[in-house]
Design a protein around this nucleic acid. Structure first.
Lengths: 218, 218
DNA sequence: CGGCGGCTGTCAGCTTCCGGTCAGCTTTTC
DNA sequence: GAAAAGCTGACCGGAAGCTGACAGCCGCCG
């Protein structure tokens, strides 16, 4: 079981990480929201423990971004004691449970266990579309039984397209989900990326709709 | 998640759009009521943020038209602070939630998330007229079960005609909705466009009313 | 530290095809 | 039957997209 721990206070992070590890989890700890989002998008976790007060990108935004990407990753939110708003917003944003700070690590372990159990199997690490299978854990694509290694960027792009299969995805929308922030619009980086993807997984899997965008599976 | 943002003040629109995007939504922003209604009817959105003071067609009318069409699209209405009437009318007209202006974007994000989660299910992205079906997600027309690829311009035209079926649409009106801005009127570009459309989806689907315009489904 | 290899953005040149223009034709109307 | 309105096939400019080459960057390894 792999857990993404997002907490900017080093002391708390260290304590929680240790507790989780000694409970048998594999833990990745990050300290800011952007890094958290990036990890959640590109790595394959079984659960996330998310503090709300974060540098760069606050916890709620992270949660919304993750949920916006279609993920059902089980998430426990850590809120300041007595802060109603945060709690309500956290649940609204898609948290599976919350825990007011300060807390006993045992309490966290118990709730995390419950949330993970509740999530059970339905968190599939595979995305299938036609003869293409994406293994999010290893970040490889399997085309007709043959594994193909993809770069981080390539994988994010194909995953977004596969997740939105049967729908035309505009270049702007794709760029927003592939790249961190806005970049100059007069660049054909996306086209190059799509080209490289096609060469790796087969050109026919990604259709071009001239003037509209790209689409998987006609 | 795709959101239709209807707001005529450019500054506010830009700010809200950016906030929504960085929260992981895909945003289409429009500035007047007619366009809003058209989009809501023909595109497939997961939610709408609707300002009430709008040019051409006010927000409440948009909302009533949308609800009148049988849609359950989640809608959040932006009202002027302290304007009771608007608020009550908004709820009456079918808003899922309202937000008094001015507001914090975080507040909007939280409420939008709540409304979207409450809605859960989905609405139909199809327009059917006779043996023709338009799939707005895939941007294809299906005629008698056979999919037909349309260019961006062709799709916009047929979508507008299908949406206004049973009504004669003048060339000028059609041009306004198909093309970005005004173009020289002495051009038969529209006629050519209609011709190409007819060849693709069947000539009998679009009737000509000489001197008046075009019409679908007599 | 230096070289090597993978990743990814930029650039230039090429290909594709959308869509406007035009000319000539057909249909409608008076 | 003539004029107006609309239709259609042909043509073509240019925008959108594709691709090969190259370079900068970074991590890895000797």
């Amino acid at each position: 079981m792999r857990i993404l721990l997002v907490e900017d206070e080093a002391a708390i992070a260290r304590e929680v990480a240790e507790a989780l590890r000694s409970a048998g989890y594999v833990v990745d700890a990050v300290g800011d929201g952007e890094e958290a989002w990036f990890r959640a998008e590109t790595e394959d976790y079984d659960g996330m423990v998310l503090d709300l007060g974060l540098p760069k990108l606050d916890g709620l935004s992270v949660l919304r971004k993750v949920r916006g990407g279609g993920s059902h990753l089980p998430v426990i939110v850590l809120t300041a004691r007595g802060n109603w708003m945060e709690r309500v917003e956290g649940i609204d944003a898609g948290a599976d449970d919350y825990l007011p700070k300060p807390f006993q690590v045992e309490e966290l372990l118990a709730r995390l266990g419950a949330v993970l159990r509740r999530a059970g199997g339905h968190s599939s690490p595979l995305i299938e579309v036609g003869r293409l299978t994406l293994e999010t854990r290893r970040r490889v694509a399997v085309v007709g039984g043959k594994p193909v290694e993809l770069s981080a960027l390539e994988f994010r792009a194909v995953r977004y397209l596969a997740h939105n299969r049967g729908r035309v995805v505009s270049q702007g929308e794709l760029a927003e989900h592939v790249y961190e922030s806005d970049r100059e619009p007069d660049s054909n980086a996306l086209e190059v990326l799509i080209g490289r993807l096609r060469r790796k997984i087969g050109a026919d899997l990604i259709a071009t709709r001239r003037g509209q965008g790209y689409m998987m599976e006609g």
